[in-house]
Nucleic acid binder design. Structure first.
Lengths: 198, 198, 198, 198
DNA sequence: CTTTAACCGAGACGGTACGTCCGGTCTTATG
DNA sequence: CATAAGACCGGACGTACCGTCTCGGTTAAAG
């Protein structure tokens, strides 16, 4: 298969230096001023080495984000028996994470790339979003088994309603990302918007 | 006030030509290949004319999107007396709008700019997001008055839960944007995730 | 005529800065290490400005050489009445010129470009070689009129025999370029190789 | 002697493949686009193998030219007793040789390298130019012995006058390289430029 | 008949320069 | 007198080669 470099030959030290440099520069200069040339310079690497292994700036940023955020974060969601409490715990952790400027900038960069790149978006969903969603679904199914979640609720929709608002506020900056806010989201979602008959 | 051009001198024909050219080019070549030079060429305008009136590519795109999407879309949400039906109507319309490639691309471009530009994000919230949110709040308050929405529900949260999921799916491409999906969102949000006691 | 920049718009200060930088760099680093980027840097000029006005490194070097060597060196050859003395004078001057490292390097650079570029070679012949050759021919014709040069000698050949050897020695470094050498060339050429019958 | 490869170990097949590839590529793409990488690829050879045995592109081209032109072309010049005829024969052969595009390109490449590389020029003179010059000198001495060449003519100068013009025309493309031209050069050189007294 | 040192093909690597494109500023000639 | 046209400096793009390096796999002389 000509033109495809042999991954066995790949220098792992160089690969890590590039990913680290990408995250570092994102933190320093921000996404709009992030350049391949700058990453190569910071990593002490030839530009060609970057172009050899990554198809686009997007895929590099994506991989850098994965490496930074911890790729195989496949830890299951907590299950203390109290669904609301567990969801709040997870969402508060997400809020705290987004409070870290480095994490914030890296994730913003990745989202910018995703917005206009179908393929990358697919990869993002497959490698990050889908696995996380599965974990969430698992927790919700457990809640259904113990009668804390209605049997007939569509889990995909439930997840979107619980976890979507945080991401939205963060992306669109429509309001402050606080623990209080996520608590309200969880409570409101569980309870529903309709009045309860007394 | 030196350096601040006199808005009276501004040629409206030229301004509209530039905004139209921006939207057209977005549709043709996509956001990543959208350039000021290209816009100037397409609009039959000198580059300087663009730089004179807009501070950044972002603010140009923002204004172009406003012009394209209809700035003063201040029409109130429908109120047929049936909250669920009205919400579904509005959300289905949003989905349909996002189905138009030109609208899709323009809105994506604007979001990319917002993600990394605090000022622009502020402007977006102030000029688009906030007014729309007020209309939605108004509709929800009406629902509260007629007993279709719980009195103690935080409206901000309710709006995020109802309208956020669509935006999220669209931005992250986590799933297809269908009428069924928004119907489910509305129903689930109104009813809540918890089981109803019999 | 699209794509062809308007020469009227051309900045002459910039043009001269580029040509000067080219000659300077040739003197400093030599032809093999002469780069467009280096010239642009030295001249304080954007690369594009060079690419806008010159089709190749060769044509830039050619023009730089012309500017350096004095384009309109249209002064006639000396005519003191003594052909041999006049030729020696001119050839000695050529030798002295080639002794100047800057002139040497510039002319070598130009010759390297000519060797592999037909078009440039044509331009060189038309703008430098041919005019100089005409002046030489003029002097030789004068010599014919006063009986110092055989009537039936082919002037083109005579010029090649008189002026070629110096250029050859210089290009191929087959021997030292001295005043003695050019004197010998002139004397030998005039007299011929055959023995004189007594 | 560390660092100096053992010439005995050298694969002659590989060496020839490299030299052949160099000449072939010169013919195909021309000197300016001739690259070490291209030669290695064409020869089916690792780049390192080239760098191991040749110090520079110039020395590789030089050796390739030698191999192509026939290194030990130590055959003496013809001596039919008629100096003018013999010289014309040799010069016509040179002209014919330069008419072959492959020979032309190879020799141009070598000359380009020589122009800016003193060491290589020295090697060229020592290995090619000097031996050829000796053969020419030998022929001229023979002519002197039979009274076809003046006793007091400086042979170095005579050779430059006879053989230089052809090389010059070829290098500078100042005129067509024809048999007629070399005939004229020989006749004019032998006879001299001065008028003969009747 | 093994060892072992060098060569060899392949190609990744840190670099430099290429020639192009565009950003943002400044100049000019036209309408 | 504003404005289109576009030259200008700067800098990043993605590509091509440079010359060095490392990697397995021959190959051939030395043990």
């Amino acid at each position: 298969m000509p033109g495809v470099p042999d991954p066995n030959r790949r220098s792992d030290a160089t690969r890590r230096a590039i990913l680290t440099a990408a995250i570092d520069l994102l933190g320093e200069v921000g996404y709009p001023k992030l350049t391949i040339e700058g990453i190569a310079r910071t990593a002490g690497v030839g530009k060609q080495t970057i172009y050899r292994w990554w198809a686009s700036k997007g895929s590099l940023i994506f991989e850098a984000f994965l490496a930074f955020a911890g790729d195989g974060e496949t830890a299951a969601l907590p299950d203390t028996g109290d669904l609301a409490a567990d969801l709040k715990l997870v969402l508060r952790a997400t809020v705290d994470e987004l409070d870290d400027p480095r994490y914030d900038k890296a994730m913003r960069a990745m989202h910018v790339e995703i917005v206009n790149d179908h393929l990358l978006a697919g990869e993002y969903v497959a490698r990050l979003e889908k696995p996380m969603r599965e974990l969430k679904k698992e927790r919700l199914r457990a809640a259904q088994r113990v009668g804390q979640l209605a049997e007939d609720v569509e889990l995909e929709v439930a997840i979107d309603m619980l976890f979507g608002p945080v991401l939205n506020r963060w992306l669109q900056r429509t309001g402050p990302l606080t623990h209080d806010y996520v608590d309200q989201v969880v409570d409101t979602a569980l309870r529903g918007l309709k009045p309860r008959k007394p």
